[in-house]
Nucleic acid binder design. Structure first.
Lengths: 328, 328
DNA sequence: GTGAAAGCGCTAACAC
DNA sequence: GTGTTAGCGCTTTCAC
């Protein structure tokens, strides 16, 4: 930076200002400075900036990445929102237990992040005080059923699951199983929504609720349909917690010669791959993951620039994609 | 840190050493120090550490993330290797043009990364000098056909594609189309491998080569099969550049009542979802993505700890998963 | 609108 | 094996 300052005939602090707070520097000087910056290819040192300014300019996204439960699309939304800002994004994978959650939270807090975005995190009461002390904006994304600690954005997973199961009922399926995954808030809400719909229809049976084990979801789906047909042949549809489980069920049905949708209906969840198709092969609940990520990042940005919390909780719409796997 | 030092009755530098180079501190002191650290919940400030030590302790992974061309699994491998180290990983999305590549490279260089892992990056000759100046270990991952600038790990995509197409030929498919994507090195090698196999069999026809447009790969797959059946009904199989394109083709075939594999064969690429299934629904080329990522990270770590380049180029094996989409 | 001085929290280099 | 000194490259504060 001092090189730039020398070449532009100003002091280092003016260069610093020209870069971060352009309005505080006269037009002429700013122009000269930016030219020199361009010329010598100066790039500021993040570490020094973070150390001096006491914030890193990094927004940390903590999520159970390895679930691949659509995190990817949300991450894209986050990145794209920050693209035009000087905030950069860092992703960290987080498991779903209180101790690990606390450890990662503490680690990030110590790095003075500009903001934190949490997905299915901070659900343990024990860690709530940690978040309260954070001193930076926090957005919890994905489900709106919990009161956000600071800000929140998501969909109503419970209502979405209910709508999906009601669609299955409307199509005439009568014994609807659940292939679930995970213990996080979204999974619990999906289960509740499933149960709501079936209780109302007088068709709820806990024996039809299956937890997928960890591992390859497509394989889990194949296994499920094999087990169902062997042990509960009366089941004629399944509501899956994500699309890859659903595709596994679909492929398994193909292998066994079970006709989809005539004999067996399949509904997935997330639907990002199918939302824009003219004719979707799979029925699914479309979750606006990209938009959720974008909005989460936007809330952080607005807090950072305007100093006020734009909204506390934002609810985005979901949609049932009626595809060929339940059309009959 | 000075708090810890005071409470432990030592100087700050000793605390620093106890944390980073434990062997340089006597057992007794180290124990006391670590106790105090635990007690007051001290967490080092990364920015200060990076500024003072001139390296950030961050390994940057630059990849065309948004392609979702299996990046995800490689990323898991990278993360898992670094989990037990004090290196942390940062991912950045990179497009596939020289200018953007140069910009991102420059940005990361300025942050003094501990290492850089590149996927389908640094293919532009104009950017090679940039990498040479880097001063940190660099691993290029995914394809072994190019001479790595520093270190490399991957598979032989050209040979893998040839093997896949030969499998299709063995199964009796005669007019084999290609549904390709992207312009990066892997995609080019896959095309070459496809061409190699068909030229050798006297069956290569450039009219059967299709570039998928950007956008939803599953939708691209559906479109392809529609177009093929309308305009080139003689085509009886397709080799796809990834599994989601292949699944799109599969679903499209279902919609149109084309029987897979009897009338039409489909082969995907990457195969991570199918590798461990007893009976895979889709034929695919299994690429050990996780292992590639893990190995890339391992090479960086070994360079960092041992100061020597462990290997220059590592080639991992691929495998053809013979699934139901070509079984006839 | 611009600059001087001080310091962010840590580590490299060297001394003991 | 431990401590002292200096400084990493930037921003804050305050003065002009």
């Amino acid at each position: 930076m001092s090189d730039v300052a020398r070449l532009a005939g100003v002091s280092p602090i003016t260069v610093s200002r020209a870069l971060r707070e352009p309005h505080k520097v006269s037009d002429k000087l700013r122009e000269t400075i930016l030219e020199v910056v361009e010329e010598i290819g100066y790039v500021p040192n993040f570490a020094a900036r973070a150390l001096a300014s006491r914030h890193s300019g990094i927004v940390a996204v903590l999520a159970p990445i390895m679930d691949m439960s659509g995190f990817f699309h949300a991450a894209r939304g986050v990145e794209e929102r920050f693209l035009t800002s000087d905030v950069s994004t860092q992703f960290a994978n987080i498991g779903l237990n209180a101790a690990e959650e606390a450890k990662l939270l503490r680690l990030f807090v110590a790095q003075n992040p500009a903001g934190i975005i949490l997905e299915s995190v901070a659900e343990f009461p024990v860690n709530k005080p940690l978040i309260a002390e954070l001193g930076c904006p926090v957005v919890q994304m994905m489900d709106t059923s919990i009161e956000p600690l600071d800000m929140g954005v998501g969909i109503r997973n419970r209502a979405a699951a209910t709508a999906a199961v009601e669609h299955l009922l409307e199509q005439g399926y009568e014994r609807i199983a659940l292939l679930g995954g995970g213990k996080d808030i979204r999974s619990r809400r999906r289960f509740e929504g499933y149960r709501d719909a079936l209780l109302r229809a007088g068709r709820y049976d806990p024996a039809y609720v299956f937890e997928s084990e960890s591992g390859n979801p497509m394989e889990q789906g194949v296994k499920l349909i094999h087990n169902l047909k062997r042990r509960m042949p009366e089941v004629d549809a399944v509501f899956c917690h994500n699309d890859r489980l659903a595709m596994g069920v679909y492929f398994g049905a193909q292998q066994m010669g079970i006709r989809v949708p005539e004999e067996f209906g399949i509904c997935g969840y997330n639907g990002v791959d199918f939302a824009e198709m003219e004719e979707s092969p799979l029925t699914s609940v479309y979750v606006p993951l990209y938009e959720i990520g974008f909005k989460a990042a936007d809330m952080i940005m607005r807090y950072l620039t305007e100093g006020v919390r734009p909204e506390t909780a934002v609810e985005l719409p979901f949609e049932i994609i009626k595809g060929n796997s339940t059309r009959r």
